[in-house]
Design a protein around this nucleic acid. Structure first.
Lengths: 210, 210
DNA sequence: ATATCTTTTGATAGTCTCTCTCTTATCCGA
DNA sequence: TCGGATAAGAGAGAGACTATCAAAAGATAT
């Protein structure tokens, strides 16, 4: 895992490089077509044509149409960043620091892609549903990381509960940005979104006072 | 809204009664077939045949296959139950009381159907994704109810944040019941699930101490 | 009871996502 | 350079979902 970019630092064989390039091409053309024509109006065949592969190949790289949009590696990165924080910090404080570190590590290109996918995630119901399900899967990783840093069992009820609360407030922030529901323009700066996430976590850390 | 049952207290014309009966029949046979053969292995055609309607009619009652499983009214009920709680209670305490009241109001038949749908929700990825998306939609209703009872603005950041945290811990509990991931047997009693939800909310209320 | 109007249903055809299988091409290591 | 793997392509097909149109059934009025 070398970052969020689709093409990893060319490591070994030509085969892997080609694979990564194909994957990146598919995703890139897919996102472009989604932006131009809308998600539903874009067919797999069009994406495959644009990326110069067969429709069958599309599904070898992405199990479903929605998966082209999903962020795959972001949660893994924050999990790593979470482990990298000093042991003294409380779980939520460590999570806040890890988020900041993750944001800082993103390249401009990463940010652009993040913005595109975030918009699609908030806009298209099917994609949103899948993305949130991924979020829930992330609860496990967060819980594991918290368990590691507090020396408790990963299945511990309270650990899992805290992980759930963290994901919950993040979901709340990301699904309603800027007061009412999602507006694409408001999402232009990813930094603002991260700032709101940090505020939400701080609020949670203080016990959600009203 | 007369309860969770599919057939509302027969009110007006024959037309509406028939409609309600058709809807109930489709859902009932669908859940039975899902239980017997699995979700993916059951086709719309089979459900339609069993319910003695045409496949097209299925889609007139439920926009997608997943929607047969979703719980539609449960969140509305808890929202109402939330408003019914005495104003003195803190938001989370009120929510706990509302949950208990909702559980108590369910008929044995409701409980059985709830158990079936809960299992499918936790088991089948597509269904789970949809259900969680519904959960997020529920954040708004919870936030509105909290805003009403605290006299704050419904769009208030901290109010929405608390609603998110509540949904987050509930998601955490319902998606992993009994330590590790879902086991159908553990789910036999719905009461146990509600008890766990209550524990999670109590933990959240105390500020998530570890 | 009959006629008319509206709503619901069924039938049919078609699109698109996704799966499976088989064959061909390409890359890797020896 | 030669087997052994792995990926890409082609094609057939299942199944979810949509659109359209005609038939059936309920509601309403005379």
């Amino acid at each position: 895992m070398t970052g969020m970019t689709d093409v990893p630092a060319s490591q070994s064989g030509l085969r892997e490089r080609k694979k990564a390039r194909t994957r990146a091409a598919i995703r890139q053309h897919a996102l472009r077509l989604f932006r131009e024509q809308g998600y539903a109006a874009t067919t797999i065949e069009q994406i495959a044509d644009a990326a110069e592969v067969s429709p069958a190949t599309f599904f070898r790289y992405f199990p479903t149409k929605e998966d082209v949009v999903l962020q795959d590696d972001l949660d893994i990165i924050t999990a790593e960043a979470l482990d990298a924080q000093p042991p003294g910090l409380s779980p939520i404080a460590a999570f806040r620091a890890a988020s900041a570190a993750t944001l800082a590590s993103l390249s401009p290109e990463d940010l652009r892609r993040f913005r595109d996918t975030a918009e699609l995630t908030a806009t298209v119901p099917e994609v949103r549903a899948r993305a949130i399900d991924e979020f829930v899967r992330t609860i496990n990783q967060i819980a594991d990381a918290i368990a590691r840093r507090t020396g408790r069992d990963p299945g511990d009820f309270e650990v899992r509960n805290m992980a759930g609360a963290i994901i919950g407030v993040i979901m709340s922030v990301t699904t309603t940005y800027g007061g009412s529901t999602w507006t694409p323009e408001a999402m232009t700066d990813v930094a603002g979104l991260f700032a709101r996430i940090d505020m939400a976590l701080a609020h949670l850390e203080q016990g959600l006072p009203l």
